[in-house]
Simulated scan of single mutants.
Amino acid sequence: MKKSKFSVALKTSLIPCCTVMFALFTLFILPAHGQDNGKKIVVNFDARYFDTTQRKADFLTYKGFKAMKISKSPGRQTIPVGLKGITFQDGTIEFDAIPPSDNYNDGIAINFHQKDPFNFETVYLRLEPDETSQRDDAIQYTPYIHGVNLWDMMKPFRGYATIHNKEWNHIKLVISGLQMMVYVNDFKKPALKVSRLEGNDPTGGISFDGEAYFANLVIKPGATEQLSPLEGPDWTDNDPSYMRKWMVTAPKTLEKGRELTAEDLPSEATPWQPIDAERRGLINLIRRFKGELTSYPKERRYVWLKTTIRSLKQQHVGMQLGFNKEVYVFLNKRLIYIDKNSAEERLQKYPGGLLDIGNTEFDLPLKEGDNEVLIGIAAKNYGWGIMARIKSLDYLFIQR
């Protein structure tokens, strides 16, 4: 799977309407700059209305439209160009975008609910030199949390989209509470349905990213097109086999080239705190533990996760485990499984290094009574977490 540089998250409250506030009110109501007719906001791409202090952009006329051309990022970390003076919650965002004629390998991104440069939600298009290439990751939704792009933990939120390299692409986001629909060059069928937005903030700024041209930005506050603001169903809710209740240690640094061993197991004095699974059974460690505010940290971190399985008899049971990036599984203090899974490396699990419950499977040799499961999980770049499931609950109990 092609990785993108666009490749920081849980809503804590649900506010039923859109809030749009203007620090520079005349920015949008003067005919020379934009228009607000009470139903939509038409934003002209003018240098006065965008924050280019950290990321340079040119403002020009391109292919018949007044546009913004974002320059190459000075580093690997995402640095978006923000729209000044606006806070967005619910409604529609529409715009046109086209890649430059000399670069079909970058991406096109629209960010929303942006709290700061490190925490926002994004939809981006992955470009290919051959625009006819059929691929299941052409469009991606993901949150950025504490500067980390969680794209490799968001497998359900990617899909196919028709993307033009030499023509304007029209993109439309419909955001309502916890749900979103995304349309790309086809307004009868959404290219992406997001049943649960995964960002931390339900409201925030709007910004753009990618070495591309952007034009014709229209914002319609509150225009949610009857999309429900409630989160959609989670297909794992009906499955009691997911291991959702864990305890977790504080993060520690794992030196380069070193792996966890029995000597690194928590001691009796190690403090623990509870952590519960999110949707899809995901234990999201990035959400819990703030790091270096970047998707490209210098240090590899690890924690220990602990839970108990009570078995009514001695038996072997299968355990499915989705993870990124390194796991060390101990059962009753005995190492039983080690593995790696990273989209950036050759050691990839299906599908393409993304975290998925189908990443791997192994046996747990359970004794009668309580069995302690300890999982060391280490990561450096992008997502960091696990999802675990017991294949059969016959004669055993897991914590819920």
Rank of each mutant, 00 (worst) to 15 (best):
P31D: 05
I283W: 09
R158P: 05
S195Q: 12
A191L: 05
N185V: 03
I283Y: 04
E263P: 00
S4T: 13
I336V: 01
G291W: 00
L30F: 08
Q179K: 12
G91S: 13
A9P: 06
H33E: 10
Y242I: 12
D234T: 14
K56W: 09
F289S: 00
S241L: 10
E131L: 05
T253W: 07
W235K: 12
Q315A: 10
D356T: 13
V182S: 02
G383E: 02
Q348N: 05
S295T: 14
A67H: 00
R135V: 07
K306P: 01
D136F: 05
Y337T: 00
D152S: 15
Y242W: 13
A250Y: 12
A109D: 10
S207E: 03
G232E: 03
G205M: 05
V43G: 07
T122G: 11
I29T: 15
L173R: 10
E94S: 15
E198I: 07
E292I: 12
Y62G: 08
S7E: 02
K11D: 02
L173G: 08
F323R: 05
N111S: 14
G369Q: 09
F25E: 10
K115H: 00
E372N: 05
G38I: 12
D130C: 03
E128A: 09
C17G: 14
G85H: 06
F95A: 03
L366K: 10
Q89V: 10
A109T: 13
H113E: 04
T162L: 13
L192F: 03
I286M: 08
D394F: 12
L374Q: 01
W151P: 06
G281D: 13
S71L: 13
V174D: 00
F22M: 04
Y62R: 14
G318Q: 05
K380D: 04
M180W: 06
Q134G: 00
A378C: 01
D394H: 15
Y183V: 10
V8W: 00
C18S: 14
K188C: 01
G147A: 00
L393K: 14
I390D: 04
V248Y: 07
G75L: 05
I108R: 13
R55C: 11
G34V: 03
P80W: 04
D90R: 12
E299T: 12
E259Q: 14
G107K: 11
V218I: 11
P221R: 03
E372L: 07
Y337W: 02
Y49G: 15
A32T: 12
D58V: 13
E94Q: 14
I29P: 01
V329Y: 02
D356M: 10
K256T: 13
W235H: 14
T308M: 04
D276V: 11
I110K: 06
Y160N: 13
S71H: 15
Y350I: 05
F289E: 00
P351C: 02
A67C: 06
L192D: 02
L305C: 01
L312N: 14
T26A: 11
L335R: 04
K11S: 03
T162Y: 09
W151T: 13
W272V: 04
F330C: 00
G376L: 01
R300H: 07
Q35D: 15
D137N: 11
P233S: 09
T92Q: 15
R135S: 08
L14D: 03
L396M: 12
K56Y: 11
I286N: 15
D116I: 07
Y160P: 08
L230M: 14
